[in-house]
């Protein structure tokens, strides 16, 4: 496989040609925050807006999940502009997220916590207002796992697994805009849907929205 030379934060790397920058950087051990990225998707979602980087010759920061590497590419993962965008996107996600990490079964295994640690961001709201004013009910209808919509970041990983890997087709994105959420046909609890409770979706959830029941006890 042909390789190209790129520079990330001053370090030179050889990465496979044609690869998206996010995966190339992660393989080189450079962390770039991300939630929705999925290597197996033919077209990146680019919806979480966390993987911004600056590339020499580009006027504005770009999402690294959509950007293919090229020979001589010079990347900076931390610039004032990148940090500002990532911080705002992160705070926006937190503003609609049930915080109180101590009570979350995913505590210490959560991607949001990882991003906060890596980028020295606070795990509480200081600037923005909480948008999660009333908590939506938690779906604990299945025997295997629970779904807490208040912790969902809409990364779409579970839906992709459900549709493309296990090919069940139980869940999808429903509604539009601020009301967009992961849900079932007719908005029924998971146990009443087509869901086979295989638990594959739980394994890909980066946060505490889908959690195995054994963890919650």
């Amino acid at each position: 496989m042909s390789k190209v030379n790129i520079t990330i934060d001053g370090q030179q790397y050889q990465v496979p040609a044609g690869e998206k920058l996010l995966w190339a950087a992660l393989d080189c051990g450079v962390y770039i925050p991300h939630l929705c990225a999925n290597k197996d998707k033919e077209r990146p979602d680019a919806s979480c807006r966390l993987c911004f980087v600056e590339i020499e010759g580009f006027s504005n920061p770009v999402t690294s999940c959509t950007q293919e590497v090229f020979e001589g590419m010079v990347v900076r993962t931390r610039t004032p502009q990148v940090d500002r965008l990532v911080q705002t996107a992160f705070e926006l996600l937190l503003s609609n997220h049930k915080l109180r990490c101590g009570k979350c079964p995913q505590n210490r295994q959560c991607e949001l916590q990882k991003i906060a640690r890596e980028r020295k961001l606070k795990l509480k709201l200081t600037r923005l207002r909480p948008l999660l004013t009333e908590e939506k009910p938690v779906d604990d209808s299945t025997d295997v796992f629970i779904y807490d919509p208040n912790r969902c970041v809409l990364c779409g990983q579970c839906i992709w697994v459900d549709h493309k890997i296990v090919e069940v087709g139980a869940i999808g994105f429903i509604n539009r805009g601020f009301k967009r959420k992961m849900g079932t046909f007719g908005d029924v609890p998971l146990a009443e849907s087509r869901c086979t409770q295989c638990g594959e979706c739980v394994k890909v959830c980066p946060v505490g929205a889908l959690v195995f029941k054994e963890k919650t006890e």
Partner: peptide, 22 residues
Amino acid sequence: TQKESCGKCTFCRLGTKQMLDI
């Protein structure tokens, strides 16, 4: 625009909501 946002990306889904509330 907030009502018409598709809700896919973080900035538009939540950013416009924050701005609207202000």
